[in-house]
């Protein structure tokens, strides 16, 4: 598993769950939810889709470790 592959999966899931978001709007180090105006349901759906793909559970207390594209990719890379 490479970090690029995980990033691609995250971006694909974001675009599926929030089709109005443009791919160029996703900045690697910006807070995903705030910068893309995703609500808590969207964010949970992204984590659910990632869980189905990589079998990684992100407990609620770790949410701060997955709040940007870069951090989420690293989090999944360490555990997938």
């Amino acid at each position: 598993m490479t970090i690029d592959k995980i990033k691609k999966a995250i971006i694909k899931n974001i675009l599926e769950i929030a089709p109005e978001v443009g791919e160029d709007e996703i900045e690697p180090n910006e807070n995903i939810q705030r910068s893309l105006e995703l609500d808590s349901f969207d964010f949970l759906k992204i984590l659910t889709a990632m869980n189905e793909e990589f079998r990684v559970e992100v407990p609620e207390k770790d949410y701060s470790q997955v709040d940007t594209l870069e951090k989420m990719a690293e989090y999944f890379l360490r555990r997938a």
């Binding site: 808590s40 349901f41 949970l44 984590l47 659910t48 869980n51 559970e57 992100v58 407990p59 609620e60």
Partner: peptide
């Protein structure tokens, strides 16, 4: 409650 649940079964505060 959410600690014991998988991502897709979690309840959001809203």
């Amino acid at each position: 409650l959410n600690e014991t649940r998988s991502v897709k079964e979690r309840i959001l505060p809203v």
